[in-house]
């Protein structure tokens, strides 16, 4: 999990006002706009097959070339932004919500509740991430819905552990004790006072988690278990272009660059947010 954060944006001296936060937000905003205006931006229909222009290298007519079915790569990369952004968002939101609720209950109440949650988390963590996801998708059947279910079932543990750790510290904090001294109930202290303080580090983590989810989504589609052809999705595009990597490099390269830039956007935003919110890692 820590691999994606090996290169820390903080070690680099950023010129002027171009901070990681601004840069990351700008990249994400760009992709968001591309996804929103895909019908206007894409020059061709992303699934229209034109046998006359198969495997064309980048040209003025097809700036990023065409694939083995004669589909325009630029149009497909643009349309795929919709699917991949959706994957990054939903793949993070469900684990985030489940993990936050589980982690806060576990950390606040402690005792046997905590023991049960921690053992469940141990079990989930005992399996390699991808293996468990593949097993769940095999049961529920291929498709994006299954991918989200699998993400939610597997991904919540990271959030639960983060939030639990924060709760363990914050429930003994002075301001939580002061809130109890005002006669507030457990749930009020927990949700109104501890939660807003505890959730910061999860918000930052969710940004770097989005990168992993995005790559997972691409990997699952690459394996044929996620988004189904002929829908444009960056992972599928890479998988489909793989057979032509020596003769038609553009089929795999451009969706690859798209994944990298979006991932970088999330990563920079995570670093920037972490610094802005004062979250230590």
């Amino acid at each position: 999990m820590s691999g994606t954060r090996a290169i820390s944006a903080r070690r680099i001296r950023w010129p002027g006002t171009v901070t990681p936060l601004v840069l990351g937000a700008a990249i994400l905003l760009t992709w968001l706009l591309i996804a929103l205006f895909a019908p206007l931006l894409a020059p061709y229909d992303p699934i229209y097959q034109d046998a006359a222009v198969r495997l064309q290298p980048p040209s003025w007519a097809h700036p990023l070339g065409t694939d083995n079915f004669g589909r325009d790569i630029l149009s497909r990369v643009i349309w795929a932004a919709r699917i991949d952004l959706q994957i990054a968002v939903f793949g993070v939101v469900f684990p985030f919500v489940i993990g936050t609720v589980a982690g806060s209950i576990s950390g606040f109440f402690g005792g046997w509740v905590d023991t049960i949650f921690m053992r469940v988390i141990d079990v989930v963590l005992a399996f390699p991430f991808l293996v468990l996801m593949l097993a769940i998708i095999t049961i529920t059947g291929p498709g994006l819905g299954s991918f989200y279910i699998a993400m939610a079932l597997v991904g919540w543990v990271s959030y639960a552990r983060l939030i639990r750790a924060q709760f363990l510290v914050l429930k003994n904090s002075d301001f939580a004790m002061a809130a109890v001294s005002l006669g507030y109930s457990n749930s009020r202290v927990m949700f109104r006072h501890i939660m807003p303080n505890a959730i910061l580090s999860s918000v930052v983590f969710s940004m770097s988690d989005a990168v992993l989810v995005l790559l997972n989504g691409a990997a699952i589609s690459y394996l044929g278990l996620g988004v189904q052809p002929p829908v444009a999705e960056w992972g599928i595009m890479i998988a489909e272009g793989q057979g032509f990597i020596t003769s038609a490099w553009w089929i795999t390269t451009f969706p690859g660059i798209a994944i990298v830039t979006l991932a970088m956007g999330f990563s920079l935003l995570a670093d920037g947010l972490g610094e802005a919110l004062g979250v230590r890692e």
Partner: peptide, 8 residues
């Protein structure tokens, strides 16, 4: 400083 909620 520590007995007041920092984010409210």
């Amino acid at each position: 400083a520590s007995h007041l909620d920092p984010v409210m």
